[in-house]
Design a protein around this nucleic acid. Structure first.
Length: 810
DNA sequence: TGAGGAAGGACCC
DNA sequence: CCCCAGGGTCCTTCCAAG
C-alpha cells in the first residue's frame, strides 16, 4: 500500500470526503463505483464541492506535516517511546475490568422506522426522513441504493428516484423515545441516553438480581398493546401492524406473535437483553439492536454488529476482547471519524491491531490525549462505568437559508434566532455569559464570533445586544462587499447556575476521577477497579508520577477509601433522599434531584454527585473572584444567602458519631462543625469544613473591608479574634492555623491541634466530603510532585484556597 | 506561567 | 430544476494580562 497520501490527484482525495460512507449496517455489497459516480456528478462544481476540496487539502497538509515529522523520528526516539508505551500498556492492562456488563442499545433506522410504522404505504418503498437538503436516516430499502443518513435529499433522489422523503416529526420520535426509555430504566435506572434512539445501560446489577427472579417475572406477553399509560397515539392500525420489515431477510424477532401468547426469557445476559428488545418491540412495534460487552466502546461496536434487529455479545475475557479488537477497523470506533481515519491510514493503519503495532509512533505524532485514546482502543479498553450525563454546556439555534446579503435582513434574522434561543433558554431556566454568533457564507466557510460578558444573560434582548454587535462587526469587516450568508446561528454557553453567580465548570473531582462514573471521552483514566482503591497512573505524561506513587501510603489509602465510602453511600442513600419533582434537563425519564450548595446555597439540580461537587468547586472559585465584580449587591453576606443558609441548617439532623453511620445516614445533612474531632477518621471531614470556611470567610471579609471598615477579624480556624485589619496579616494567620491541621493530618494524627472545631455552621457534609478530600489530595500531590513539567492543579489554584496549602508545602 | 476566552475543527446522532 | 442540517461535546491553538 502507498504510505504516502500526498501525490494522488485531487479527485481521488476528494473521494474520501464525498464518497459514500458504506461502513454502516445495511450497506454491504453495493455498487460503490456507480454510486460514487452519481454522488460526484451531483456535487461537482457546487460551492459545497469547492469547500470540500479546500478542506480536503487542509487535511492533506496535516498529513504531510505529520509524515514530515515522522521522517524526523530517530530510532532511539522511537525506542524510548516504545518503552513508554509498553509501560503504560502494562499499567492499563492491570486496570482492565471485565466485570461489568455494558449494553448499548440502538433503535434500527429509528426515524424511518417510526414513519413506516405509522404509514404502511411507506413500508415497501425506499424512504428517508429529512428534507431535500439533508436526510436524517433512511430505511434499509433505501440503503440498498446507497441512500443514507447525512446525505442531501437531492442527491439521494438521484441515486434512487423513487425515494420518498418524509419530513421529520420530532415530537413523535420523542414520544417513542420516552417509551423505550421507560423500558431501559427497568434494566438500569441510571442508563444514559445518547440520543433519542440510543442508550448505554449497565446491566450488571440487573443481572445479579435477575438470577433469583421467578419465571413469571421474566415472562412477557406478546403484542400487549393494552393500556400502558405512555402508549401514545400509534393507533394507525391497532392490532394488525407488525414490526416494519426493515430487511427482507430480517430475522423474525419473536416467534408466535399471536396475541395473547407469552414469551419467556432466561436469566443470562443475552436473554435479558433479548427480553428488553422484545419488550421494546412489543411496546413500540419498532426493533432495536444491542451490543453486550465489558465496556462502553466495545458495546457500541457490538450493537452495530448484528444490526438490524439483532444483538451481539462479546464475552468478558481478555482473549475474546483482544481477538475482537484486532480485526476491527479503526473507523468503527466511536470518536475516530473521517479525518482521523485518513491520517491513520497514511501511517498504514486501518485496523486496531495496526494501531497497537504503531503505538510508539503514534505517541510521537499525536497529542497526549489522542494517543492515549488510541492506546486504549488498541487494548479494547474504555469506560466500564456509564457516566451520568451532565448538565448541558451550551444551547444554540441555527438556520440555513438561501442567500441572505442585506444587513437589515441579517440583523432581523439574528434577532429571530435570539428570540428562539431565549425561549429555549427559558424552558430550562438557564443563563449564560458567552454569546457566540455563527455564520456560514455562501461558500460554506464557517466563522464563529464570541463574546463573554461579566454577567449571565437569558433574554432575547440581552442576547441580541451581543449578537448584533458581533454581526455588525462582521458586516463592517466585509466592508464594501456584503456578507453573503447561507447560515446563521446563535449559541449561548458558560452557564451559571440558577443563583446567577456560579459558573458550572470542571472540577477537581473529575480530574481525580473519583466519581463512580467515568468520563468516557475526555479523560485518559477510565478504569476503576471494583474496590476503587487505585487507578494506576495513567494521568502521567512524560515526567509526572502517579498519584498512588506519590501519595504517602497511609494518607493515600485513607483518602481514597474515605472518599469512596462517602461517595458510594452518598450516591446510593443520600441522593435518593433528595428527589425532587423538578423536570430534569435530560428528560430521560429519570427523576431530577437537587442538592443545596453549602457555599452559595443554591439548589443544584443534578443526580450526579460529581456534578454537584463541581458546582461547589466553581462556587468556591467564584466566591474568590466575586469581589472583582462591580455589582456589590452580591456579597456573601447577602441576606438572601442567609435565608437560604438557614433553610439548609434546618434540614440537618443529628447524626451518630460513627463514621460509617454518618456517611451513610440517609438524612443527608450533617452538622460537621459539631462532629467530635476525637474520632480519628473524621479529621478529614473536619479539615474539610475548616477549609471551606476558610475559603469562604476571607472573601466575605475582604469585601467588607473594601466597602467599609470593620477590622475585627476572627480566624475561622482557631476562632480567635485577630488584632489586625491587615488582610495579608490575617490571611497569614489563617494559613498557619490551617496548616497545622494539615500537618496533623499528614502526620497521621487522628485529631488536630486540640482546638475546638472552628466552625459553627452546618453543612451538608457528605456532599462536601469527597470534594474537599480531593482538594487536599490534589494540592498535596502537586506539591510533592516537584517535577517541573507536572501540571499544577489548575483548579486548586483557582480556588483561592490553594494559597494556604501551597504555603505550607513551600 | 497560566487561567480562560476565542476561533476553528473533528465527531456524533 | 433544486447544489449538503441542526443540536451538541470535546480538543487544540493562539493570545494577552499580570
Amino acid at each position: 500500500r502507498m504510505e504516502n497520501g500526498a501525490g494522488s490527484t485531487k479527485e481521488e482525495n476528494l473521494l474520501s470526503r464525498m464518497a459514500l460512507n458504506d461502513n454502516k449496517a445495511g450497506m454491504e455489497g453495493l455498487d460503490r463505483d456507480k454510486i460514487n459516480r452519481i454522488i460526484m456528478e451531483a456535487s461537482k462544481g457546487s460551492r459545497f464541492y469547492g469547500n470540500e476540496l479546500k478542506k480536503e487539502q487542509q487535511v492533506n497538509q496535516r498529513i504531510e506535516k505529520m509524515m514530515h515529522q515522522k521522517a524526523q523520528i530517530t530510532e532511539q526516539l522511537l525506542q524510548k517511546a516504545q518503552a513508554q508505551v509498553e509501560k503504560m500498556t502494562s499499567e492499563l492492562e492491570k486496570s482492565r475490568d471485565l466485570s461489568r456488563v455494558i449494553v448499548h442499545v440502538d433503535m434500527d433506522a429509528f426515524y424511518a422506522a417510526v414513519e413506516m410504522r405509522d404509514c404502511p404505504e411507506l413500508k415497501d418503498t425506499p424512504m428517508a426522513v429529512g428534507s431535500m437538503s439533508m436526510l436524517s436516516t433512511s430505511n434499509y430499502h433505501a440503503r440498498k441504493y446507497g441512500v443514507r443518513a447525512a446525505m442531501p435529499g437531492f442527491i439521494a433522489k438521484k441515486l434512487c428516484p423513487s425515494l420518498v422523503i418524509v419530513p421529520p416529526n420530532f415530537d413523535k420520535y420523542r414520544a417513542v423515545s420516552e417509551e423505550i426509555r421507560e423500558i431501559f430504566a427497568e434494566y438500569d435506572p441510571n442508563f444514559q441516553p445518547m440520543s433519542l434512539d440510543e442508550a448505554y445501560l449497565d446491566f450488571t446489577d440487573h443481572l445479579e438480581q435477575r438470577q433469583s427472579w421467578p419465571e413469571s417475572s421474566r415472562t412477557h406477553r406478546c403484542r400487549s398493546r393494552s393500556n400502558t399509560p405512555a402508549d401514545e397515539s400509534d393507533k394507525t392500525e391497532e392490532g394488525t401492524d407488525l414490526s416494519p420489515v426493515l430487511f427482507e431477510d430480517s430475522p423474525v424477532s419473536s416467534e408466535g406473535d399471536a396475541a395473547g401468547s407469552f414469551e419467556q426469557f432466561g436469566t443470562s445476559v443475552e436473554e435479558a437483553v433479548r427480553e428488553m428488545r422484545f419488550r421494546i418491540e412489543q411496546k413500540t412495534t419498532l426493533t432495536a439492536s444491542a451490543g453486550i460487552a465489558p465496556n462502553m466502546m466495545l458495546a457500541k461496536v457490538c450493537s452495530d454488529k448484528n444490526k438490524p434487529n439483532g444483538q451481539y455479545r462479546l464475552p468478558p475475557t481478555r482473549e475474546a476482547v483482544m481477538d475482537f479488537i484486532q480485526k476491527l477497523p479503526v473507523r468503527k470506533v466511536c470518536g475516530i471519524g473521517k479525518v482521523s481515519e485518513k491520517m491513520l491510514n497514511a501511517l498504514g493503519i486501518t485496523t486496531c491491531s495496526d494501531l497497537s503495532r504503531q503505538m510508539a509512533l503514534l505517541s510521537l505524532l499525536f497529542s497526549e490525549t489522542s494517543w492515549h485514546h488510541f492506546l486504549q482502543i488498541s487494548l479494547g479498553l474504555s469506560s466500564t462505568h456509564i457516566p451520568r450525563h451532565e448538565e448541558r454546556k451550551s444551547m444554540s439555534t441555527e438556520r440555513t437559508f438561501k442567500e441572505l446579503s442585506k444587513p437589515e435582513e441579517q440583523l432581523s434574522l439574528c434577532r429571530e434566532l435570539c428570540d428562539d434561543l431565549a425561549e429555549d433558554l427559558k424552558k430550562e431556566a438557564l443563563k449564560g455569559k458567552t454569546v457566540t454568533l455563527k455564520i456560514k457564507n455562501v461558500n460554506f466557510e464557517v466563522k464563529t464570533r464570541a463574546q463573554t460578558l461579566p454577567y449571565a444573560v437569558a433574554t432575547a434582548e440581552d442576547i441580541f445586544a451581543v449578537a448584533k454587535d458581533l454581526l455588525k462587526t462582521e458586516i463592517e469587516n466585509e466592508s464594501p462587499q456584503p456578507l453573503r450568508l447561507r447560515l446563521m446561528g446563535v449559541r449561548i454557553s458558560a452557564f451559571v447556575s440558577s443563583d446567577g453567580k456560579t459558573p458550572m465548570q470542571k472540577s477537581i473531582i473529575s480530574f481525580l476521577q473519583l466519581g463512580k462514573r467515568d468520563h468516557s471521552r475526555s479523560s485518559p483514566i477510565t478504569h476503576r477497579k471494583p474496590e476503587g482503591v487505585s487507578r494506576g497512573s495513567l494521568v502521567r505524561n512524560h515526567s509526572s508520577l502517579s498519584f498512588k506513587e506519590l501519595m504517602p501510603k497511609d494518607l493515600n489509602s485513607r483518602l481514597q477509601s474515605q472518599v469512596h465510602r462517602m461517595k458510594d453511600d452518598l450516591s446510593e442513600n443520600e441522593l435518593a433522599s433528595h428527589v425532587q419533582p423538578h423536570a430534569s434537563t435530560s428528560g430521560c425519564g429519570t427523576p431530577a434531584e437537587t442538592f443545596t450548595c453549602p457555599v452559595c446555597f443554591a439548589k443544584v439540580k443534578t443526580t450526579d454527585l460529581n456534578v454537584f461537587n463541581r458546582h461547589i468547586d466553581s462556587c468556591l472559585s467564584d466566591a474568590a473572584k466575586r469581589e472583582d465584580e462591580a455589582s456589590g449587591s452580591e456579597s456573601d453576606l447577602d441576606p438572601e444567602d442567609d435565608h437560604r443558609k438557614s433553610t439548609v441548617v434546618t434540614q440537618k439532623k443529628e447524626k451518630p458519631r460513627d463514621l460509617k453511620n454518618e456517611a451513610s445516614a440517609s438524612g443527608g445533612e450533617l452538622d460537621l462543625g459539631r462532629v467530635s474531632p476525637q474520632e480519628g477518621q473524621q479529621t478529614l471531614k473536619n479539615n474539610l469544613v475548616s477549609l471551606i470556611q476558610v475559603d469562604k470567610k476571607p472573601v466575605a471579609l475582604q469585601q467588607q473591608s473594601s466597602l467599609s471598615r470593620s477590622p475585627l477579624l476572627t480566624c475561622p480556624v482557631c476562632q480567635r479574634a485577630q488584632d489586625t485589619d491587615d488582610l495579608a496579616v490575617f490571611n497569614h494567620h489563617v494559613d498557619l492555623c490551617l496548616n497545622q491541621e494539615v500537618l496533623h493530618e499528614l502526620g497521621g494524627q487522628t485529631a488536630f491541634t486540640g482546638k475546638p472545631p472552628a466552625v459553627k455552621n452546618s453543612f451538608s457534609v457528605g456532599k462536601c466530603v469527597s470534594f474537599t478530600s480531593c482538594l487536599i489530595s490534589i494540592s498535596f500531590i502537586d506539591q510533592i510532585r516537584d517535577t517541573p513539567s507536572s501540571p499544577p492543579s489548575k483548579k486548586a489554584k483557582s480556588l483561592g484556597l490553594c494559597n494556604t496549602i501551597d504555603k505550607f508545602f513551600r
